[in-house]
């Protein structure tokens, strides 16, 4: 498999063309906007947190295949997860895409992003939504407007 096939795996292409949870969340209680001024990628993360668990999560935005698929697969993976689990997942995901470690079992489908590690300039594409998620978690609850 070439580096390119490794990067653009079928599941990544599928999620980039048909992103899941790609909508505004009307009852979200946390939200944050992420922006990469270098490439113009934009993402908004909508989060409904209940007692430290992700009850629901969605995203909106525009970006490349890697950033869109990353957002789509992240939202799928995080439903029902606790804040503690999210922290661990992000750490593992970051290590995966920067080539510091191989995929751990808890990453599940997110393991498809291992190919990103061969493309250092694309790491930011894969992690933008995760950084935005962190900002959403830290944002004050119930200040979200979906206007």
């Amino acid at each position: 498999m070439s580096y390119l096939d490794d990067l653009y795996q079928e599941i990544i292409l599928d999620h980039s063309k048909k992103p899941r949870n790609f909508k505004e969340l009307s009852d979200a209680n946390h939200k944050a906007d992420g922006y990469n001024p270098l490439c113009g990628d934009k993402v908004s993360v909508y989060l409904k947190l209940e007692d430290g668990f992700v009850e629901d999560i969605s995203f909106m935005g525009s970006g490349c295949a890697i950033s869109t698929a990353s957002a789509s697969l992240m939202t799928q993976t995080l439903k029902g997860k606790s804040l503690g689990e999210i922290e661990t997942l992000f750490k593992n995901f970051h290590n995966l895409v920067t080539g510091k470690s191989s995929a751990s079992t808890e990453l599940g489908k997110l393991a498809v992003f291992h190919g990103v590690s061969q493309f250092p300039v694309r790491v930011k594409c894969a992690t933008l939504v995760w950084h935005t998620l962190q900002a959403a978690i830290k944002s004050k609850p119930e200040t979200v407007s979906t206007e």
Partner: peptide, 9 residues
């Protein structure tokens, strides 16, 4: 196709 994916390929 986003321009960055074009660029990478």
């Amino acid at each position: 196709v986003h321009a960055h994916d074009v660029g990478t390929i």
